[in-house]
């Protein structure tokens, strides 16, 4: 009994350690700048929504969120569309060069974006995609597609082969079998994969910043602009930060039971 008590205390302390910095950000976002810079207070003495109002009424701010959400959704769709058939191939068949292809995909997940940064700008400019949402979506595929193939392959390997064979005997064509029977069976895997594609595209800054200037500028880049300018508007910065955390919180609820498996790249 003593042991369980100690465990509860331990995990509570750790979760406090995780939440206090976030609480501090939320706390600041409801304060006026005078209060932030004036004295240290554990909670806002006059709760103000002005900081949030700035973001919701200023186009340069809220367009950043729209841009981010646009390219992130495009990325999730593209990633799933190409990764699903590929993961099926990897989980069901042996073909020439499969192991090496798989490894090559993995290296792209591991390679630092900074390495490819140099020519990315020219590459996307030369095909006329610079400063568009689709450019960022495609660039993020570089690390999201390999990750998606890994996770999906893990989930698909859990579906017995007999199911495929029975369906073929029953006269299903491959596309019909894949969409009607197979995809519903790995629903949770697809959900988790979409979640991870969303997450890694949402949190990335370096590529998104390099490939955009005005029209598709992500919220993260707009925030870094504010930092370091004379007289940082701490309240608005904190509010902008809080708003970037919310989408993640909304989507994680749906995949909470499978998240751990996804983090293990489907390999538990």
């Amino acid at each position: 009994m003593n042991m369980t008590k100690r465990k509860i205390v331990g995990i509570t302390l750790y979760i406090l350690f995780l939440l206090v910095p976030i609480y501090w950000l939320v706390n600041m976002s409801f304060k006026t700048n005078e209060e932030i810079l004036g004295s240290l207070s554990l909670w806002p003495s006059n709760v103000t929504f002005d900081n949030y109002m700035v973001i919701f009424t200023d186009a340069t701010w809220y367009s950043g969120y729209i841009n981010s959400i646009l390219y992130v959704s495009m990325n999730v769709v593209i990633t799933l569309l190409v990764a699903l058939p590929a993961a099926y191939a990897f989980s069901r068949y042996r073909f020439t060069g499969d192991k090496h292809l798989f490894f090559w995909l993995l290296t792209n997940r591991m390679a630092p974006p900074a390495v490819f940064l140099l020519p990315f700008f020219q590459l996307y400019s030369s095909v006329g995609l610079f400063d568009t949402h689709i450019a960022v979506a495609l660039a993020h595929c570089l690390f999201n597609v390999p990750l998606a193939v890994w996770i999906l392959e893990g989930f698909m390997s859990g579906v017995p082969r007999e199911i495929d064979e029975t369906a073929y005997i029953d006269g299903y064509s491959f596309p019909r079998f894949f969409v009607r029977i197979f995809l519903p069976m790995i629903r949770s895997g697809i959900g988790v994969t979409a979640f991870f594609a969303f997450m890694f595209s949402w949190v990335e800054l370096l590529l998104a910043r390099t490939l955009t200037s005005v029209d598709a500028k992500p919220i993260a880049a707009i925030m870094t602009r504010t930092v370091g300018a004379t007289g940082v508007d701490w309240g608005v910065l904190a509010a902008a930060g809080v708003l970037t955390i919310l989408p993640g919180l909304l989507v994680i609820w749906f995949v909470r039971n499978h998240v751990a498996k996804g983090f293990a790249l489907g390999r538990v």
Partner: peptide, 20 residues
Amino acid sequence: ILLAIPLLIPWNVVGTIWQI
């Protein structure tokens, strides 16, 4: 879910949180 929260925060916001 609580444990996963830090993983869902954009990396520059992580920097901002600790900067503040």
